[in-house]
Amino acid sequence: MSWVNLAEEIRSLPPSCGPVRIVAVDGPGGSGKTTFAGRLARELDAQVVHSDDFPVPWDEPPAAWFTHVEDRILTPLAAGEPGRYRRYDWVAGRYAEWVDVPVAPALILEGVSTARRAAPIAYAVWVEAPRGLRLARALARDGAHLAAQWERWARAEDEWFAADATRSRADLLLDGAAVPGEFVRLRT
């Protein structure tokens, strides 16, 4: 499947949240979700909302951030109104700029627990990669000093994904260990 075909398939779906088709790009940390979501957003001419834009302490479950998305983005979109949220700056340790989320044909939610069972998802993508590769990517991005936190986070992700059965409900399974910018389908 090409990027064009995937975008056409998503555009052909009925809206799932008011007039918007919500596309969830989910999977464990470091699997390649952000890269995939960015490329798909260009093809769909859609905005990406990243789970990393919301403050969630390391000791909270991976799904804790989603109430912000429900309150500030999904509820307004369901009513046909634009959403808005304040991005969290992890480096500065405080909230940064406001981000507007207009009513549009498609919106991509990217991050751990975006394809949750109870979310108004039109299309769910699951991206996976071997645990060692994911950890290496995360530590290269965030710093080796966070290794212990990333190990705890990975265990919490495993628990979340098992409880929510996220992978088994995905419309598209992808190999995130493939060449960046390309996607290798595991199954549909």
Rank of each mutant, 00 (worst) to 15 (best):
I22A: 10
A37E: 13
V23S: 04
V25N: 02
K33M: 13
V25T: 02
P28N: 14
E43Q: 15
V49G: 01
A41Q: 09
D52S: 10
D52N: 09
K33R: 14
D45N: 15
G38S: 08
P55S: 07
A37K: 01
S31F: 00
R39P: 01
P28R: 13
A41I: 03
F54E: 07
A24L: 11
V49Q: 11
R21N: 10
T34G: 10
A46S: 07
D26A: 01
D26P: 02
A37I: 00
E43T: 03
P55M: 07
G29L: 05
A24P: 10
L44C: 13
D53Q: 11
D53T: 08
R39G: 03
F36K: 05
S51K: 15
A41D: 05
F36N: 04
H50L: 03
I22T: 04
G32L: 11
E43N: 09
D52Q: 06
F36T: 08
F36M: 04
G27H: 10
D45H: 15
S51R: 10
F54M: 00
G29H: 03
A24T: 00
D52M: 12
S31E: 12
K33Q: 14
D26H: 10
G32Y: 06
I22S: 12
P28I: 06
Q47A: 08
Q47L: 15
D26L: 12
R21H: 11
D45L: 14
F54Q: 03
V48R: 01
G38K: 10
I22H: 00
P55C: 09
V48K: 09
V48Q: 06
Q47T: 03
L40N: 08
V25F: 03
T34F: 00
R39C: 07
S51Y: 09
T34Y: 01
T35V: 15
V48H: 09
G30N: 10
T34C: 06
H50N: 02
K33D: 07
V49T: 12
R42F: 13
